[in-house]
Design a binder for these strands. Sequence first.
DNA 1: ATTGCCATGTAAGGGGTTACATGATTAT
DNA 2: ATAATCATGTAACCCCTTACATGGCAAT
Lengths: 201, 201
Amino acid sequence: MPRKSRTRYSILGCLTVEPQSGYDIKRFLERTVAHFWSESYGQLYPTLGTLEEEGLIEGRDVPGERGQDKRVYAITERGREALSGWLTEPPEPVRPRYEHSLKLFFGFNVPPAVSLGHIEAVRKEAAADLQAYRDAEARLAPKAQAEPTSPAPYWLAVLRGGIRYSEMMLEWCEETEALLTGLPDASQGAGAGRAGGRGKA
Amino acid sequence: MPRKSRTRYSILGCLTVEPQSGYDIKRFLERTVAHFWSESYGQLYPTLGTLEEEGLIEGRDVPGERGQDKRVYAITERGREALSGWLTEPPEPVRPRYEHSLKLFFGFNVPPAVSLGHIEAVRKEAAADLQAYRDAEARLAPKAQAEPTSPAPYWLAVLRGGIRYSEMMLEWCEETEALLTGLPDASQGAGAGRAGGRGKA
DNA sequence: ATTGCCATGTAAGGGGTTACATGATTAT
DNA sequence: ATAATCATGTAACCCCTTACATGGCAAT
């Protein structure tokens, strides 16, 4: 048994912002929390059906802005209760699998240039993210000050985390590039890489 | 179709350090990369069988230190090639799902004390992690200096990332506690939380 | 005796992604 | 025409976790 689905709650959360269709929810998530959360249609639409059956959300057909119908869902009182319950439970410690870190951990099996190349990609991504986050911060920070009962303070807190994370990654990339640059190629020569191979990180 | 399995490569990577049994690999991962990678027995043992069939590893039965047999696997030349190939490919951008961030993002639906409680837990965890990382750093840093062809420099790079991450989290927790402390309870009262609910983070 | 560690597995089952299918509208 | 966006879904597939099963040895 894998962990319980959290798609239900991400949907409920989105619907506390405003009533939305499945398509709207996907776009909302992509515009706001894409860097730490995402939902696929394959999860989204079936879950919307389940939530409606359970009475946690209510859908109604609304003529779309371009002639096409859309099914817009609103959260119900029971839905709010379910969401509150989940939000109140302590977050389960996620044990993520960072492919990037794993590749670096085993990087001594390939020339240092390989790891350096990957880090350069990470650095560029962090720099781009940071720029985007800073732009968003400029828009969100005033609102968080002016409207303390809106979602804005919470969204700003999450955003500040993204900013700090990106800044930290930029610094770490520079440090690591310095650490790996000039390192001999430990992957060449049979068994050469295993000198002092024991140890504890 | 989900993403391709990376269990194969984490096993191969472990076996470049030294020949190990399935049980050894599990313990090795837990002692070294637990905070960003893990394998369950349910994945580990079947994958060991597959890798051996494919000729990427070779197992042999070894009498255990306490009378019991263990099956110790060593990576083959073809295994090294497969690992190198994977290590060289650019890491796929992982889109992790941070339950903690999502709960904070929707935290305006519950009293601020709830989010503050979660953040306090995160802070404690980060502090404990940081202590453990610093201890490990004290052991690993000299080795990384002294043995540049060993895995140590790479393991130190990863470890430095953990240290920077934990430090960053500690700072972010303090900042966020300041931001959320004293915030009015936006979750009370029907519809009160939806003032100014539009926006872009 | 019983707990704990060493050691190897299997079974079940859900969560989530990817790819496919469909179709309307709008812009180039 | 053709591409892009809006919009809703289904099908396949598998990765991974959890839980269970088994058993030997060591220590209390």
